[in-house]
Write a protein that binds this DNA or RNA. Sequence first.
DNA 1: TGTATTCAATTTGTATACATTTCGTATACG
DNA 2: CGTATACGAAATGTATACAAATTGAATACA
Lengths: 229, 229
Amino acid sequence: MTPKKSDLLETLRTRVLTLAIAPGAALDEAALAEEFGVSRTPLREVFQKLDSEGYISLRPGRSAVASSMDMPRMRQFFQTAPMIYAATTRLAAEHRGAGRVPELRAIQAKFCVATLAGDADQAALFNHHFHNLIGEMAGNPYLSAALDRLLIDHTRLSEMFFSPAGPDEAALVGRAVSDHDQMIAAIAAGEAARAVEITLAHWALSRDRMERFVRPDPLEDPLNREALP
Amino acid sequence: MTPKKSDLLETLRTRVLTLAIAPGAALDEAALAEEFGVSRTPLREVFQKLDSEGYISLRPGRSAVASSMDMPRMRQFFQTAPMIYAATTRLAAEHRGAGRVPELRAIQAKFCVATLAGDADQAALFNHHFHNLIGEMAGNPYLSAALDRLLIDHTRLSEMFFSPAGPDEAALVGRAVSDHDQMIAAIAAGEAARAVEITLAHWALSRDRMERFVRPDPLEDPLNREALP
DNA sequence: TGTATTCAATTTGTATACATTTCGTATACG
DNA sequence: CGTATACGAAATGTATACAAATTGAATACA
């Protein structure tokens, strides 16, 4: 793939993941072709690929739109994620990371830096790459297809629900970093059961955080200080 | 999508599934564009879609080739299939088929006819559509992505290993038909546990049949009629 | 006022011509 | 004789021009 095209591909992926292109928002062919200095033909090929990867949705006669995140889809996401995360991590550990543990450590280092710097977008992207690479380590194309789609939505949900200014958010982020370190160790050691255990705990953490934002604690009534149901 | 293009898409899918295009075989752009009366631009878009669905493999500067079926991939196939088949069937049953049970019955009827007529290609294709539809009934795009890829390889493996002239093959095909009927009943009734049970038994039947062809019973020695190890 | 219909403007889809890359073959050289 | 290199034919990748379809607004009508 020509560098211009893969750059375009990567940029659009990033824009979708960071919500620079919001779910459901349309992508303007002519404008993007102009912006990246390519003609519409290769741009449309990039669209096809993004569509196949689950980043955008392409329907005949309609403009390309970033994949939506409606309620049914979120329900399916929460339903499917733990199974696929556990299965891919197990395989990755059984292969002892397929010799790619150094890459994983490198991404983790960048993730760590981004969290300390408080850069939510960067942190989310490196977190995405971290879990994506574990999927590649599993070396199972069938499960990877499922995992890749899950990760797109997971990253976007995290972006939506992440408030960098939150008071105890810092502690949660710290636990995410530590979880990653433990996952790396378990994968490198080939300890599949432990890798799965950590992964499911990691998932539970993320899920709870997202659920808290979907259904936040009820506000206190400023006039009558009793707790609401 | 214009009818000409979706026809082209469906035809190429069929050719790959029936091994009319063998695994690893190259697809000639110019020839296919000529054959279907379209220009190379829409043909290449169809290629992109087939690539994303797992039917063909597209690499820059190389011609499109039908997906290979090497040993590592087959290993992953046998490893992953039961999990995804069980999960999708469970969801389909929990949704009671999402109102699409009639479609499923229609496909099953055609599958039945094809088996009785001994048309292996047609039988394999309707079997493919049968399981594909169960995937749609599950209504989970993450799992569907995995299932679709599994089914492509499953159908091609069946094509490879199916000998219509086999003596006791008829009984096995009969059991496959009956399994399908039971799966329809369980899905329509919303009996998820039973649907999963039948699906796993159905899988075991198919797996055993494929394994028998990969590692066939040893031949008898015509000179010394003792059984070999 | 609300709804249906027509038409222009915009956008998407396709064809073709051209640029670039790859692959096979022939030839030169070690 | 085997290997490396250079060339040419053929295939892939891109740009542009044109055709078809969709969108939105303005107008006519109930």
